[in-house]
């Protein structure tokens, strides 16, 4: 066991060294990118899920194009762990830190500690309320509004609706606010149920809850799911109860497996509004790179969402995120945080 542990550690360290050996400088880029070997840390609150995978893929693509070595770690829904990962990144002496999600109360002081140590920080989807920390944002309100307006178009302004929601997560809070707003403006919409849970098995747990909700509210026809893991849970429940023709899901976020869930015959998930998580990852790295180079990417790096309906996907025979990017150019790329010296991700 001892031997295998040491060899594991050695293998890991060799991999790390091997990885950094590939990083070369970019001619004409501002320091330190002209020499290469820049190391950043990417700390995510989540630990799993399609969204995170796509986000990290985008991070890696853009980092590679910039000759950056990215140390990627996940707190697995443990906010204290996220603090420690950020602290560790500071100890490691990285050139910059991307904080992906989390809760401001727990992270503000460590983020400030990073700034104090001269390490620039960029945050996605967590408002650290610090003028020195640019916020990468997908406009949550825009996303929710896009998809809910589609719901009004499909279902009219009079239906029984429900929402899967857990308080305390800033993006969910903002998306939920739009739902409340729409319900308030349309007296025909009856907001009959709110449920949801965030744990290690979100989809399965939400599915169990949803079954109970659907049995209690037989007339429920629209479910707004402000997170795709929620949508997946609701879809599971609707499928298992055989209510696919009665209940429609209007979701937020997208990934390859989301696409496949949407285009399944009889799928209740009919529309989703999303930014491309890969693009979010790419833009975050670009914004951070500008900060490291001493440039200002602006305090808010906004990534515009796209509405994707079931019909769009089926009609264009789109099965994966790659195909979606190929056929929806707006989805593929964002101008956010671009600079002439930053190479396009491959």
């Amino acid at each position: 066991m001892r031997r295998s542990l040491i060899s594991l550690a050695l293998a890991a360290s060799l991999a790390a060294i091997g990885g950094s050996a590939f990083a070369e400088g970019i001619a004409g880029a501002p320091a330190p990118f002209d020499k290469g070997g820049v190391k950043i840390a990417v700390v995510s609150f989540l630990g799993s899920g399609d969204w995170l995978q796509a986000f990290e893929a985008g991070v890696k693509r853009q980092a590679e194009a910039l000759g950056i070595e990215a140390n990627i770690s996940q707190a697995r829904n443990d906010i204290n762990q996220e603090r420690e990962l950020i602290q560790q990144a500071i100890n490691l002496g990285v050139k910059g830190i991307i904080i992906n999600n989390g809760q401001p109360e727990a992270l503000k002081d460590v983020a400030q500690a990073a700034l104090d140590a001269g390490i620039p920080v960029i945050a996605y989807d967590v408002n650290l309320d610090n003028p020195k920390i640019p916020q990468v944002e997908q406009s949550d309100a825009d996303m929710a509004r896009l998809v809910l307006e589609q719901a009004l178009k499909d279902e009219g302004t009079s239906f029984e609706g429900g929402v899967v929601y857990v308080a305390g997560f800033a993006p969910l809070d903002r998306r939920y606010a739009v739902w409340k707003d729409i319900v308030a403006k349309n007296p025909g919409i009856k907001d009959v149920a709110t449920w949801g849970v965030v744990n290690d098995t979100v989809a399965a747990s939400v599915a169990d809850q949803t079954k109970a909700v659907l049995r209690a509210n037989p007339n429920l026809s629209v479910v707004f799911t402000p997170w795709d893991e929620f949508a997946r849970g609701v879809k599971l429940a609707v499928d298992e109860l055989g209510l696919g023709d009665k209940v429609k899901i209007y979701g937020v976020d997208i990934s390859t497996s989301d696409i496949q869930a949407i285009i399944e015959p009889g799928s209740p998930w009919v529309a989703t509004a999303a930014t491309n998580p890969s693009v979010v990852g790419e833009a975050s790295v670009r914004g951070l790179a500008q900060l490291i180079a001493g440039q200002d990417p602006g305090h808010s790096i906004l990534i515009q969402p796209t509405l994707v309906t079931k019909n769009d996907l089926v009609d264009n025979n789109i099965k994966t995120i790659e195909e979606l990017q190929a056929k929806f150019p707006a989805f593929k790329d964002s101008d956010a945080a671009k600079a002439p010296w930053i190479p396009e991700p491959k």
């Binding site: 697995r76 829904n77 443990d78 906010i79 204290n80 603090r83 809760q103 109360e105 727990a106 857990v166 305390g168 965030v198 744990n199 290690d200």
Partner: peptide, 13 residues
């Protein structure tokens, strides 16, 4: 005192 809030999932592991 580290996280500054009461989270439902704290202490999982």
């Amino acid at each position: 005192s580290r996280v500054g809030r009461g989270d439902v999932s704290a202490g999982n592991s």
